[in-house]
């Protein structure tokens, strides 16, 4: 009986340890990494920023704008960060010139925040190629956003697509003026508070 228990326990430990070993790399990739579509206000001047939370993994109502429930917000092509002039949180951001998969840790340097309405942490030309006459912009491949979230955790994000759409998220082409922009982005959210992705 003792013997069999021992064997059973050993087997269990072995099983658990083997599970752990297998899971570690999986954790890194599949648990945190997600590709999402995010439909935002398409007006360059009017209306609310559409807010996103890494913890939620999606949008947050604009009524929560005065809270730490969101990390960043987008209105058309302008990105705000939940900190200082933009919100009560303590989010930071930086853009790294590396493909998403090559960014393995959020080095604690060069992070920025929105100091004022006009001095935002992120400038459009840093991450997108903007064509004002065609009214389109394309996220530049090889640029990765690294975030400190509003609650002090870390995330990395890669913009993949920015499509002009109507209110329902159906793509529109010129001459129709878009009312929404549908972003597709990939992100990895590190919940455990470390800077590793």
């Amino acid at each position: 009986m003792k013997k069999s228990m021992l064997i059973g326990a050993t087997a269990l430990v072995f099983l658990m340890s083997s599970c752990k070993k297998d899971e570690t790399p999986d954790n890194k990739v599949s648990i945190n990494e997600k590709t999402v579509e995010f439909l935002v206000n398409g007006s360059g001047r009017f209306g609310n920023y559409t807010l996103f939370s890494f913890a939620v993994g999606g949008g947050v109502p604009s009524t929560d704008s005065n809270s730490t429930k969101w990390d960043f917000g987008i209105r058309q092509a302008t990105i705000i960060i939940n900190n200082a002039s933009s919100g009560p949180g303590s989010a930071f951001v930086k853009i790294v010139d590396k493909p998403f998969q090559e960014v393995t840790s959020a080095k604690l340097e060069n992070f920025k925040y929105d100091t004022s309405v006009t001095q935002r942490a992120i400038k459009l030309e840093e991450w997108a190629d903007y064509n004002p006459t065609a009214r389109t912009f394309s996220p530049i491949a090889g640029k990765t956003f690294v975030f400190v979230t509003a609650t002090g955790r870390y995330a990395k994000l890669e913009m993949l697509k920015a499509e002009p759409t109507d209110d329902n998220g159906s793509p529109v082409i010129p001459p129709t003026i878009p009312t929404k922009i549908k972003y597709t982005f990939r992100y990895a959210y590190q919940q455990n508070g470390t800077t590793n992705f």
């Binding site: 590709t35 010139d97 491949a141 890669e158 993949l160």
Partner: peptide, 15 residues
């Protein structure tokens, strides 16, 4: 070696 691109809209960026 400063320009990246993707093979498909949702693919990984590469040089």
């Amino acid at each position: 070696k400063k320009l990246y691109g993707r093979n498909s809209p949702l693919g990984n960026a590469r040089l």
